[in-house]
């Protein structure tokens, strides 16, 4: 498909999709969303580029290769299990750390969130690989 409108639009749509992906990832713990859905949305951004240009270009323009994304995602998943084990809890037990920021603010970071980031990266990688498999010219 060779459409100028699609190509121009894809820049902005991809930005929106990627922001939505990050948003879904961040709100995921207690509300609908999470790493999996975020990953699908981010994968969709790559798909959009693939439709506007070609899938080969879309893959080449990714700075991180899908295989690397899967490998790092899986390693992050594995790493997220370590704090729970060190604290003597069951595997995959959620541990939360609080980072104070200024007066009244604090950031809570927990192993479930790190786990979600791992899932996020893995899902992007898998989605892109699926699309490349289906779109070999």
């Amino acid at each position: 498909m060779n459409s100028v409108i699609l190509k121009i639009a894809s820049r902005y749509v991809r930005l929106i999709l990627f922001s939505a992906a990050i948003f879904a990832l961040l709100r995921g713990h207690n509300l609908p969303g999470g790493g999996f859905i975020g990953g699908l949305l981010a994968g969709l951004a790559v798909v959009y580029k693939g439709f506007a240009y070609t899938f080969r270009e879309a893959r080449q323009s990714m700075r991180l290769k899908p295989e690397f994304l899967i490998a790092s995602g899986l390693s992050i998943v594995l790493l997220s299990m370590i704090p729970g084990i060190l604290n003597g809890k069951n595997l995959m037990h959620g541990i939360w750390y609080k980072i104070p920021l200024g007066e009244a603010m604090e950031i809570k970071i927990g192993t479930p969130f790190i786990f979600d980031i791992g899932v996020f990266l893995t899902v992007i990688g898998v989605t892109v690989i699926f699309l490349l498999v289906l779109n070999r010219e």
């Binding site: 999996f36 699926f130 498999v133 289906l134």
Partner: peptide
């Protein structure tokens, strides 16, 4: 559904 998606991608690739 996710597992089904993976399997369908694989079957389509195999068929191709």
């Amino acid at each position: 559904i996710v597992i089904g998606l993976g399997i369908i991608v694989f079957t389509l690739a195999l068929k191709y």
